[in-house]
């Protein structure tokens, strides 16, 4: 299963790769990273249909925001699940994300236990 993580902070890749190293080794999990909304769209458009099944995106990014990215993905690739990971956990951001079709909303600092639970849930279905 291919998961795309979108965040303008480059260290996110190192963090996720290390946190999920067991799942990457043992289970069928592949992580790809994009550092902007634009890059994320490019990755999704690489193959038709896209190989990515789940996108986790930051909200506050320069250029395209995570919410805009979410709306584009939901329009172009409605089969892809999208969840948000943001430091802005206020109700306004939360409602906007959920109303735009986000599956879950995770806040930073990321609680990897709940994030892993979410990914495992999708892996097992």
């Amino acid at each position: 299963m291919k998961i795309l993580i979108v965040d303008d902070e480059k260290d996110v890749e190192m963090l996720f790769r290390q946190k999920f190293r067991k799942e990457i080794k043992q289970e069928d999990l592949e992580l790809v990273f994009a550092f902007s909304g634009k890059e994320a769209i490019e990755i999704l458009e690489e193959s038709d249909p896209p190989s990515v099944v789940y996108v986790f995106s930051d909200i506050n990014m320069p250029g395209m925001t995570g919410i805009e990215l979410l709306q584009i993905i939901k329009k172009k690739f409605p089969q892809i699940k999208v969840s948000m990971i943001s430091a802005y956990g206020d109700s306004e951001n939360y409602n906007r994300a959920i109303n735009s079709g986000a599956k879950e909303f995770f806040t930073k600092p990321i609680d990897f236990t709940s994030l892993k639970r979410e990914i495992r849930g999708v892996l097992n279905t």
Binding site: Q18, A87, K108, P109
Partner: peptide
């Protein structure tokens, strides 16, 4: 406050790792 959460995310999670 929100921006501080980003580095804190790395601090707590990388130390756990």
């Amino acid at each position: 406050a929100h921006e501080i959460k980003n580095p804190l995310n790395f601090i707590t999670n990388f130390s756990d790792l």
